[in-house]
Simulated assay, not measured.
Amino acid sequence: MTATDHLPDATPTNWVDRYAPAALRPWLKLGRFDRPTGIWLLMLPGWQGIALAAAMERQAPNPVLMLEFFLGAALMRAAGCAYNDIVDRDFDAKVARTAGRPIPSGQISVKQAWAFVVACALVSLAILLTMGWVAIALGVASLGLVAAYPFMKRITWWPQAWLGLTFNWGALLGYAAATGHLSWPAGLLYASGFFWTLGYDTIYAVQDLEDDALAGVKSSALRLGDAAPKAVLGFYVAAFVLALAAAWVGGLGPLFLPPAALFGVHLSRQAARLDVKDGVAALALFKSNSLAGLLLVMAMAAGMWSGPASSI
Rank of each mutant, 00 (worst) to 15 (best):
Thr2Gly: 14
Asp5Glu: 15
Asp9Gly: 08
Ala10Arg: 04
Asn14Glu: 10
Arg18Lys: 14
Tyr19Gly: 01
Ala22Gly: 03
Ala23Gln: 11
Leu30Ala: 15
Arg35His: 04
Arg35Phe: 03
Leu42Pro: 02
Ile50Met: 07
Ala54Ser: 11
Glu57Lys: 10
Ala60Phe: 15
Phe70Pro: 05
Ala74Val: 13
Arg77His: 15
Arg77Phe: 00
Cys81Ala: 12
Ala82Lys: 03
Tyr83Lys: 00
Tyr83Ser: 07
Ile86Pro: 04
Phe91Gln: 09
Lys94Thr: 13
Gly100Trp: 14
Ser109Lys: 08
Trp114Leu: 09
Ala115Gly: 14
Val118His: 03
Val118Cys: 11
Cys120Asn: 13
Ser124Trp: 03
Ala126Tyr: 11
Ala126Cys: 12
Leu128Pro: 04
Met131Asp: 02
Ser142Arg: 04
Leu143Lys: 06
Val146Arg: 07
Phe151Trp: 13
Trp158Asn: 04
Phe167Lys: 05
Tyr175Arg: 14
Thr179Ala: 01
Leu182His: 15
Trp184Val: 15
Pro185Phe: 14
Tyr200Pro: 00
Thr202Lys: 04
Ala213Thr: 10
Ala213Glu: 14
Ala213Leu: 12
Gly216Glu: 06
Val217Arg: 07
Leu224Glu: 09
Asp226Val: 11
Ala228Met: 06
Pro229Tyr: 08
Ala231Tyr: 04
Leu233Ser: 08
Ala238Ser: 12
Ala239Cys: 13
Val241Ala: 09
Leu255Met: 07
Phe256Leu: 09
Leu257Pro: 05
Phe263Thr: 05
Phe263Cys: 10
Ala271Met: 11
Ala271Trp: 04
Leu285Ile: 10
Ser288Cys: 09
Ala292Phe: 01
Leu296Cys: 14
Ala299Lys: 00
Gly303Ile: 11
Ser311Arg: 11
